[in-house]
């Protein structure tokens, strides 16, 4: 099935486990009420690699997606399993064009193991889904919310992600509705 207008597409960048993509897909469909097709994976672009920092530049990844994306889907969420940063920030969990078409999330900092804690598959998948919903929220023009339990809350830590709910607060939900009307 080809994704059409008003739809979201998930763009795996590198190998991402199908189970995880399915979890993200389910959340996006549930929250945004549109279909979320999973596109065939693309290789992470070399040009985004910053050797000195052993990380990838999220801005360059989004630029790469802009060049290589299929025309149809209205919004595309890149999913990668490498650590992301920007030239000026030590790391980012993800990035998005505010009111634009593209967003990307990284799975690297979402695993409990990365913090010396025991693995927890369900928690990990839940974090991935939250990251996905959050970044796509930006493409609908939503900014960060001050409510700690809203999905648009900006937390610079994964522990903060765990405090958020996988949904918009009433105010953000309203903004989202307004954004979709036009």
């Amino acid at each position: 099935m080809l994704a059409g207008a008003n739809d979201i597409a998930i763009q795996p960048l590198g190998a991402i486990r199908p189970e995880l993509l399915a979890r993200i897909q389910a959340s996006l469909q549930n929250i945004y009420g549109s279909t979320a097709a999973i596109l065939p994976p693309l290789k992470i672009p070399r040009e985004a690699w910053i050797a000195a920092r052993q990380q990838y530049d999220s801005t360059k990844i989004i630029r790469f997606m802009t060049r290589s994306a299929p025309a149809a889907p209205e919004r595309i969420l890149g999913v990668c399993d490498v650590d992301l940063c920007t030239p000026i920030l030590t790391f980012v969990f993800g990035a998005a064009e505010v009111g634009g078409r593209f967003a990307v999330i990284s799975l690297q900092r979402l695993r409990p193991e990365a913090y010396g804690l025991p693995a927890d598959r369900l928690l990990f998948m839940q974090r991935c889904a939250k990251a996905a919903v959050h970044e796509l929220g930006h493409t609908f023009g939503l900014r960060h919310c001050y409510r700690y339990d809203c999905i648009m809350f900006s937390c610079c830590s994964v522990e903060g992600t765990d405090l958020k709910q996988e949904r918009f607060c009433p105010r953000c939900a309203e903004k989202l509705r307004d954004a979709r009307k036009c």
């Binding site: 801005t59 360059k60 920007t86 030239p87 000026i88 920030l89 998005a96 505010v98 900014r143 960060h144």
Partner: peptide, 17 residues
Amino acid sequence: DEEIVRVSLGNWLKEDG
């Protein structure tokens, strides 16, 4: 003076409102 710095930082700040 670096374009990618302006864009990436600008975007990050926009996300923050």
